[in-house]
Amino acid sequence: MTAVLLETRGLCKNFGALEVAREVGIRLEAGARHALIGPNGAGKTTLVNLLTGLLRPSRGRVLLRGEDVTHLTQAGRVKRGIARTFQINQLFRGLTVLENVYIAVAERMGVASSMIRPAGRRRDVIDQALRLLETLKLADDAGRRVAELPYGRQRLVEIAIALGLEPRVLLLDEPAAGVPGAESHIILDAIAALPDEIGVLIIEHDMDLVFRFAQQITVMVSGEIFAEGTPTEIAANRDVRAVYLGSAAADG
């Protein structure tokens, strides 16, 4: 049996009377490639926000490798190995690509509060950031300001920042959203090349990507888990086809 990395138990979140997560229990194993799908407004991003600590649950618990992290801050969870990307780019737009990743790597290595020694003298941080950019094929853009990059490559910087934290769990919130078709292969390649040992949870609307990538799929509808299973099981599930795949197939 593989080790459970990240687990939620009875997770609930209300905004007033609006219930955006209801008794959500999800398990992510080491090395997992797990997709979270569901119609818009199903609560997928809310779940990511609950997992990372951006939101506090109304009830329920979040466990990371058996440890209860429900009450930890975002920073505390990052230190324990949870990293994420955002559905809409959240980058340091005025800084270079290298600096974007530098900030994440410096934070992980615990040198980010150091005040006297120049940032440029931390060759170890720069080298790690650069190596990461090379594996994501971003090294050519290292010196460019993020705001100047095409959108698809900006999405890669999102992933680079998250990987700079050397996470055990990586939460990808629609990594290919907004990327034009011609560029989408760079995102797919990057996801396919993620290190095996990281547990990956991916929210995605692109069914090609989901079925190519995922070993396990969870379907959410209206804040609840609607179905779980392998891609073949989900594809064969009539209820899922009715609420989700049917409409997606009609779109595509």
């Binding site: 951006l54 920073a75 980058l91 340091f92 800084l95 934070e107 006297i116 120049p118 440029g120 934290l165």
Partner: peptide, 27 residues
């Protein structure tokens, strides 16, 4: 010295995108 240090870089990060700074685990 302060603005060119990693601390200064992280202040710039807070200015540029505070949401992301939280998400990389910065206090």
């Amino acid at each position: 010295a302060l603005v060119y240090s990693p601390f200064g870089e992280s202040l710039t990060g807070i200015r540029e995108n505070v949401l992301r700074m939280h998400a990389v685990g910065a206090p």
